[in-house]
């Protein structure tokens, strides 16, 4: 097992060459959806005498995500993964470095239920369609299609407080898809759900990812979730947040958490994650 390495250039080709891992040529040639280039972020603007940032939350992060790729950002709480996602989403801007999204607009799905409680499930989706400038004539069909997609067909008139946690996150997913962007950013969207509901939603997210040809960047602190979903898992360290290692989850077909290669990879990543957490606990 190689020592933890910081990944300065994570373009698929560079990674493939450096790691010697097998990466399909088709993926290498896929267009870039998100390109993060030496991004640092600090809140407050403390600078060291040499002009570098003091106590940055993120330090010189670089990451290229291919179109159609499913990347999981894994790290302990407070490592800056959500900050990075907010930067990609454009909700905040990096202190240094650049972020480009040649893949188009991004949609962000939050951990907590971020649905508007004054609207019904359907109207939450309708608002997203309206703000995405979808023609009014298409709204009703589109709402029903999206609700069907997340298996909530016919439930559009429900109030948010009438829905279970899992159903709310399905609606939130439908609302994110209503934005018609091909890049979906997900900030621990299933963290507050029970294990069984989460498992079901993992399956559905995988299905929707493939059906809708999405690029997904998924933030989690749950190793099993990362391995279950991602094609690539990026492990982040804390203070400052940087990538320390990455794994390609080269598994085709059934990706149940019980599969032996998945379990082996999960335990390998867990070891690394533990080491990171211990390192920062000192």
């Amino acid at each position: 097992m190689s020592e933890s390495t910081i990944v300065p250039d994570s373009s698929p080709r560079a990674v493939a060459e450096r790691s010697g891992l097998h990466v399909p040529e088709s993926l290498i040639d896929a267009a870039t959806a998100v390109s993060i280039n030496r991004v640092s972020k600090s809140f407050g603007n403390d600078l060291n005498p040499d002009g570098s940032l003091r106590a940055p939350v993120l330090k010189e992060i670089s990451l290229d995500v291919r179109q159609g790729e499913f990347v999981c950002l894994l790290g302990a709480s407070g490592c800056g993964k959500s900050t990075l996602l907010n930067l990609i989403a454009g909700l905040d801007s990096p202190t240094q470095g650049t972020i480009e999204t040649p893949g188009g607009r991004t949609a962000l799905m939050f951990q907590e239920s971020a649905l508007f409680p004054w609207l019904t499930a359907g109207d939450n989706i309708k608002l997203a369609l309206r703000l995405a400038d979808v023609p009014k004539a298409e709204w009703n069909d589109e709402i029903e299609r999206l609700l069907e997609l997340v298996h909530l067909g016919g439930q559009g008139s429900k109030r948010i407080h009438e829905l279970s946690g899992g159903m709310r996150q399905r609606v939130a997913l439908a609302r994110a898809l209503a934005q018609r962007s091909k890049i979906l950013l997900m900030d621990e969207p299933f963290a507050a759900l029970d294990a069984i509901t989460r498992d079901v939603l993992h399956e559905e997210l995988s299905r929707i990812w493939q059906e809708q040809d999405l690029t997904i960047i998924f933030v989690t602190h749950n190793v099993r979730e990362a391995v279950r979903l991602g094609q690539r898992v990026m492990l982040m360290s804390s203070r400052p947040g940087t990538f320390v290692r990455q794994w390609d989850v080269d598994v085709t077909g059934e990706r149940r958490i019980e599969a032996p290669e998945i379990a082996a990879l999960a335990s390998e990543i867990t070891t690394d994650l533990r080491r990171e957490i211990r390192r920062h606990a000192k």
Partner: peptide, 20 residues
């Protein structure tokens, strides 16, 4: 979180006031 969601959905200026 509401204004952030609004911004994410593309509600700016008057739209943000009206819808969020």
């Amino acid at each position: 979180i509401y204004p952030r969601v609004g911004k994410m959905l593309g509600a700016t200026g008057f739209d943000a006031i009206r819808f969020v």
